[in-house]
Design a protein around this nucleic acid. Structure first.
Lengths: 303, 303
DNA sequence: TCATCGGCATACCTGCAAGGTATCCAAATA
DNA sequence: TATTTGGATACCTTGCAGGTATGCCGATGA
């Protein structure tokens, strides 16, 4: 019968790529570790590592098994925490993620605050990351819900629900010749250099902006790309170009960036989406979803 | 450090509601089981069971922990199955590359599609690039196999295996004076300007074409070079010259390009090769190689 | 090409924790 | 109050993880 110790050893060896170093990290000697790995291989009936002259390397099958083992080990580690929390009578735990651009959206912070207030017994865990990473974390059950801005890659098994649509605004370096306007059309930006956040692996804001510019009769000159929507603003502040961002980003209050409303770029909106696991019908997630959708509806009616 | 044995015991006791019966089911005596449960309680710092006059009952916290334990145990049990499946090549990851000209070859797409269908558990990663880049990626283990057209630079450590040989066709701008012929000889192209894709760092199609032209009694006038075989076609479409391409490129269906069969240029063929790492004897790569070679053999016999 | 080294494998011993047996004890029947 | 049921305790036994010593193989370098 397979035991956790072996799996922990397996993961460590895979991480180190080196039995001796892994043994060191585990605080045991090398020979027992070698033996444990071999016993595990015998038990699974699979060669997990190629033995190289220097170190070891997981075989193809090894990689797959290591990932599964990592998952099991991580879940086992969490049990202790689950136990103490359950003993304290806490009603559960909800891990919520959001893309960096959603982090500044008042709706998101408002929802999280309201949920925390209504359920003080629930431990909220928050994480900020890129949409593809959030999607992966949802699938791996490291997250229970995520506010995202685009439907990125492979979302099979996830429920993606639109909450809000947000207007876009133009972000300009302070003192830019257009910064004194109260409204701008896309066409007025035709001569500008744009900075963008890196195109995600799926259709996203990037493509929508591109399409809108083309519709306005120009192809934007892209100066530099940034890994996060939020970091484009520092590029704008540095004068490397202009960009379009969701209106809520104005709250970031970056020095040397001025925002101007965008006029007549219909269809150019930043959606705010809520992603959950389709299978996951746990009470907490369900409540969070329900409340978020209700609040979104109210916001949309008010607007 | 928490171990799976304890978790298994915990789940069994919870299921039976009875330490003695659980012990029986586990094939151990009752006292050790009692002790293991108490040790687990001590480790987690939580009382998991209420001791009743007849049997035991999980506490509130106990129920939560039991569910978490059940999940971990189930996942651990699955690891063995995951391992055997991975060893059989039903799971894992395979990164395949192809040169842009091979990308349009029906054989290549067919092989990849068939492999994906036969092994849905395998994550296929595809990359299109030039032959030298593919060779480098193979050596760096960013790729596991690559369809290439020529044996480029330094292929030490790689196994290069011929799969197919493909006829060449003449690509002409639409409306070209020779475009109405049904067949052309090389000699008939002696007065034409040629466009070529850039010569790779090793011997390739370029040299084969050059040699064939020389054998036909002329040295081709080279008009412009393109970085990819596929982009030569747009040059042809723009009327910058004619070129010779593998027959499968006809599928690209470029507007303003017409293809004419080539007559009597024996030896002028575009090989399709499969490159793998010589050392790499992983199940997945091996299976892919085997199936590609088998399919190639069948295709050659049919042709 | 031979010496050296780095690093996994093998052999064999040791100690601890899981398992076994015997027995106790508390509460629920009768 | 006697009996039964089932978990707890005490104490012995054993198997498996861990330790030390050493072998062996391939890679590197003089």
């Amino acid at each position: 019968m397979i035991e956790l110790r072996r799996l922990r050893y397996l993961v460590t060896v895979a991480d180190e790529g080196h039995v001796t170093r892994a043994a060191e990290r585990l605080g045991i000697a090398q020979p027992p570790l070698t033996r444990q790995i071999r016993l595990l291989e015998a038990e699974l009936g699979v060669t997990l590592f190629e033995r190289l002259p220097r170190g070891v390397r997981p075989t193809e099958a090894g990689r797959v098994v290591v990932e599964a083992a990592r998952d099991v080990v991580a879940r086992a580690e969490r049990i202790k925490e689950i136990a103490t929390r359950a003993a304290r009578g806490e009603q559960g735990r909800l891990a919520i993620g959001y893309t960096s651009s959603a982090a500044f959206h008042p709706f998101v912070t408002q929802q999280i605050r309201a949920f925390r207030k209504a359920r003080p017994g629930v431990l909220l865990e928050l994480a900020e990351d890129g949409t593809p990473e959030l999607v992966k974390a949802l699938k791996d059950e490291r997250l229970d819900a995520a506010f995202i801005r685009s439907t990125s890659t492979d979302v099979a098994g996830l429920a993606i629900e639109p909450l809000l649509e947000e207007k876009m605004v133009v972000a300009l370096p302070a003192g830019h010749r257009l910064a004194r306007e109260s409204k701008l059309t896309l066409a007025e930006l035709a001569e500008e250099t744009f900075v963008f956040y890196r195109r995600p692996t799926g259709p996203g804001l990037y493509d929508a902006i591109m399409a809108a510019c083309l519709a306005a009769g120009f192809s934007p000159a892209v100066g530099q790309e940034a890994p996060r929507l939020s970091s484009t603003l520092s590029l704008v502040a540095s004068g490397l170009g202009v960009t379009l961002t969701p209106a809520s980003m104005q709250r970031m209050n970056v020095e040397d960036v001025q925002f101007v409303r965008l006029k007549g770029a219909k269809g150019l909106v930043a959606p705010l989406l809520l992603a959950t696991r389709r299978r996951d019908r746990s009470t907490l997630v369900e409540a969070f979803r329900r409340e978020a959708k209700a609040a979104a509806l109210k916001t949309n009616v008010a607007a």
